[in-house]
Amino acid sequence: AAAADRKLLASESHEFHTIKLSSILPGSVCDSSSQGHKLPSPSSLKVVHKHGPCHKTKESSLPSASELLATDESRVKSINSRISFSAARNTFASTDSVRLPAKSGSSLGAGNYLVQVGLGTPKKDLSLIFDTGSDLTWTQCEPCARSCYDQAEPIFDPSKSSAYSNVSCGTPACNQLKSATGNSPGCNTNTCVYGIQYGDQSFSVGFFGKDTLTLTPTDVVPNFFFGCGQNNQGLFGQTAGLIGLARDPLSIVQQTSKQYGQVFSYCLPSRSSETGSLTFGQSYVSKAVKYTPFSSSQGTTFYFIDVLAMFVGGQKLQISPTVFSTAGSIIDSGTVITRLPPAAYTALRDAFRKQMTSYPMGKPVSILDTCYDFSKYNTVKIPTISIIFGGNTKIDIDGSGILYAVSSSQVCLAFAPNSDASD
């Protein structure tokens, strides 16, 4: 087996990845070498997986792979419904007499990667999900007037922060909540009240306030607007809330635009037991980065990009460009599995399966229908997958981004189809 592994590892090419199975299976211990890994800049925050061993979570609260993928599906459905709504609204935008209902909630299930930030004076450390698919930053707040779920760190208490203040009703920041959350703000004894609801029925409601946000010891944001949640329920794991990295004026990207010039970057680790980073500002962006343009005409929340073509094992898939352009494309840090238009998925899956015939197939799981039983292998050879984005920017997906490992006997192609070509 060792000799076969050496032979496989020596045969790495642009058409195949050779992967050690142990490198993609979920780890049970936080990787101490990655913990000590130097962050790329003083403005970088450590990123950990929500259900990985680097975040203190009760084992009993860890979801199964099927549950995780079901949650992912609910996020995808809600993204599609939001974009459909936005498209319908744009269609009628020029007709004054047409009145559409307000967006029925932001509809975004919780993402999977966390950063720890400090809130208040003195600061309290809070682990927040970071999400490029939503705008509002919120955390659970004492006294939890209605309901708080169990979180790993102590719940933020605004009465113990000298810099906290509530935002008054009718102020520009309060009025901005309508576009940031999809819901009109409420008012309680002149304090602005926010409400954000997600597609899986998770929600947070509370007072809209501002306080000092400490990203790193050298990066402090005074008067940062955020939601102080008094009624919080849903699939947020044991995190303290969420940090919104989309494009609305209330997102952290826009609130810190003077400090960081509306630029941020992240790197997600290959395993959930390792750490990555989230960095604000341009200074530490690698010169080797290849760019594709955003389309900013479709609302302020999602980051729309263009996908032009896909390659499997170095061979271009025969997919009509209209397959990708019909409904468009977004990038999202909170969706786990990439969703493709049905025709693109079928072409990708068939090409992948064709090059994987030497491995026994395994049982499908949830939305993943192309799984392999690698229990008898230490190392496997899988075809490369590349995507051409707008501007002819070709990106080779890392080996760890092609497979989703539930167990050694159930390692699946980490792509899934949308239910409809127009999704």
Partner: peptide, 30 residues
Amino acid sequence: VLIYGNVQQKTMQVVYDVAGNKLGFGAKGC
């Protein structure tokens, strides 16, 4: 829509240049 999810973003430096209206990918970012 096609949604480019986080599994496929692993190990890349993903750069959101919102002011410049562009998204960047850098191989082996972590």
